[in-house]
Amino acid sequence: MPVRRGHVAPQNTFLDTIIRKFEGQSRKFIIANARVENCAVIYCNDGFCELCGYSRAEVMQRPCTCDFLHGPRTQRRAAAQIAQALLGAEERKVEIAFYRKDGSCFLCLVDVVPVKNEDGAVIMFILNFEVVMEKDMVGSPAHDTNHRGPPTSWLAPGRAKTFRLKLPALLALTARESSVRSGGAGGAGAPGAVVVDVDLTPAAPSSESLALDEVTAMDNHVAGLGPAEERRALVGPGSPPRSAPGQLPSPRAHSLNPDASGSSCSLARTRSRESCASVRRASSADDIEAMRAGVLPPPPRHASTGAMHPLRSGLLNSTSDSDLVRYRTISKIPQITLNFVDLKGDPFLASPTSDREIIAPKIKERTHNVTEKVTQVLSLGADVLPEYKLQAPRIHRWTILHYSPFKAVWDWLILLLVIYTAVFTPYSAAFLLKETEEGPPATECGYACQPLAVVDLIVDIMFIVDILINFRTTYVNANEEVVSHPGRIAVHYFKGWFLIDMVAAIPFDLLI
């Protein structure tokens, strides 16, 4: 008679799926529990143990900040960024110097990925580790590398530091407007667009060049630039800015003055950032001319202004700041037409079709709590990747769950009947059967004279019903998954307890 339990259901295979997918890609990662103190490590794979030199037993239950890997060259700011990422709910990448158990130093890129439950609360953290440099290539500990984003994938490793954006290309926007319009339909740009040429040739750093990471940081200074100062900065030398009595002219307006920039070969870094931020506020060169004239017309309804409409929906549905990093990277690809469009465009503009998908598509409701890094690593669709929660398995109709209350009560009843059979069957065979043979035949009273025979008949009927119930009862397979398919249940029961239950259900007393 089957006594099969499996009270692990309803099970959740999400954690096993993450481990299996990460292991298949030869990654070095740990999984931490966000619900406990210090976000203790609950799993670390073999790749991480080989990377740091510690065994799994030495890593388990330690804080996922990996303070046991810190050393003299470990930056405090990087460690603080990892700790801050564990307090938030967004994906974050941090470069930090770690030390192995043998004392060797290596520069590592740590990717902190939160995993949320159905309520939107962070319950786990996945920390992925990628070695960037070994100890002989690690720089000085005073050099802070965590304020910069990861290198873009479309640049060669040897040319990542030679990417320079020439400031004269930004200063000569109005001069290039006529050349853009003359391109017409034969050019790649839309009317009114501004073409910015980027020099990728390796050259020595000069005062006129600005690194790509500095251009990325310009967006942080746009908020500090007032509207009046932006307007004066875009007017140009024809209309000098008016300053109040006793007030000095704005240095932001002076930063885009061609006369002032041409007199000296070098520009201050602050002026460069502010000038680029001011130019980015204009949607095209037409807006710059309109600002000089004193009238700013409404933005025209053409394809170039609607190019950012799908980007707005993608940004609203993005799951991490990696989408913004990807957008900034692609927006700086050289030799393309940049349409400086305000994100607050007309909502009635139709979304044009684009061959290049900048932001990841909208994630469906079932995966809105899973970050983009987890979705990318697992390579699963929205119909396959579940949320991290207890999910009731989908069972067929008329199927009994093996952990249901009805099955528990039924098993206790069958257990009592088995005990009765084990006690009274030998007793009936030894004593009652002998008395029946010696006594007179009682054929007239039937079952009324033999109450134990009636009980034995009921017990046999219950055993037959138990066999039928076992054909529709779920079970737990070797992978700790609840199986509810009727065919698989029948095959599993035939290979197991079916023969024993059938022999126990045969009414031998009635056959004798």
Rank of each mutant, 00 (worst) to 15 (best):
L267N: 05
L15N: 01
D102N: 09
S266K: 08
A382K: 12
I288E: 07
R92M: 13
P63C: 13
M218W: 11
V384W: 09
V198Q: 11
L107W: 08
V94C: 14
I333S: 11
L127V: 09
D16S: 15
E130P: 01
S243C: 08
G345H: 11
C44Q: 01
V8S: 10
S243R: 14
L385A: 11
L87H: 15
E372V: 04
F348L: 07
I123Q: 10
S278L: 11
V341S: 13
G236S: 08
G381F: 04
T201F: 05
A89R: 14
G24Q: 13
P205D: 12
P299S: 09
R326L: 05
L316H: 14
I359G: 14
F48Y: 01
G381E: 08
G184P: 14
S322P: 14
S250P: 15
P297V: 10
P297H: 15
E177M: 06
T353S: 10
V131Q: 15
N33H: 07
P241A: 13
G103C: 12
V8N: 04
L267A: 08
G192H: 05
V94W: 01
P63M: 04
E95L: 09
L170Y: 08
R100S: 04
L109D: 11
T174S: 14
S264N: 04
L296P: 11
R252C: 15
D102H: 01
D355V: 14
P347M: 09
D346N: 04
A78V: 04
T305K: 06
S239P: 07
V94Q: 06
A40L: 13
G186C: 05
R301V: 14
G246Y: 14
C105M: 15
R176Y: 03
A85K: 01
A89T: 13
V384E: 04
T201S: 15
R148V: 14
S313P: 11
H221C: 13
I358Y: 11
R366P: 07
A160L: 13
G183Q: 14
R242T: 15
P227M: 13
V112D: 01
M291C: 04
V195W: 01
E177I: 01
V180F: 15
T375K: 09
P2W: 06
G103V: 01
R366H: 07
P241G: 12
S272P: 10
G238M: 08
N38Q: 10
E208G: 05
G149K: 12
K364I: 07
G120W: 04
A97L: 14
V377A: 05
Y43A: 01
V196A: 04
V112M: 06
N257F: 14
L349G: 12
I19G: 01
A79I: 13
K364R: 14
E130L: 03
D259K: 15
A268H: 07
V3Q: 15
S266W: 04
F29C: 01
R4L: 14
P151Q: 13
S354A: 14
S272N: 07
D136W: 14
K166Y: 01
A277L: 07
T367P: 12
S153T: 15
F98L: 09
T74G: 01
H70I: 05
S284T: 13
I82T: 01
K93E: 13
E130H: 07
C64L: 02
G262T: 09
T367W: 15
D102R: 01
Q335R: 08
M137F: 15
N339D: 15
A85C: 04
V325N: 09
F68G: 01
R326A: 13
H143K: 11
D102K: 01
T174R: 14
A260M: 07
K28R: 09
I30C: 06
E50A: 12
R328F: 03
R148E: 15
P334D: 15
L127M: 11
T329I: 06
M291N: 07
A228K: 11
G294M: 04
P251G: 11
G224P: 06
Q61T: 09
N369P: 07
A293S: 15
A169D: 06
E50R: 13
A79N: 01
N33L: 06
I288S: 11
V3A: 11
A285Y: 13
D102S: 06
G189D: 05
D355N: 12
P310S: 13
R164N: 11
R292C: 05
Y54E: 01
G306N: 05
H70T: 07
E90S: 09
A83L: 12
R328C: 07
D346Q: 11
P63L: 01
I336E: 07
D144W: 06
R356M: 05
P249A: 08
A382C: 12
E90P: 03
E274I: 05
Q376R: 05
H143M: 13
V36W: 06
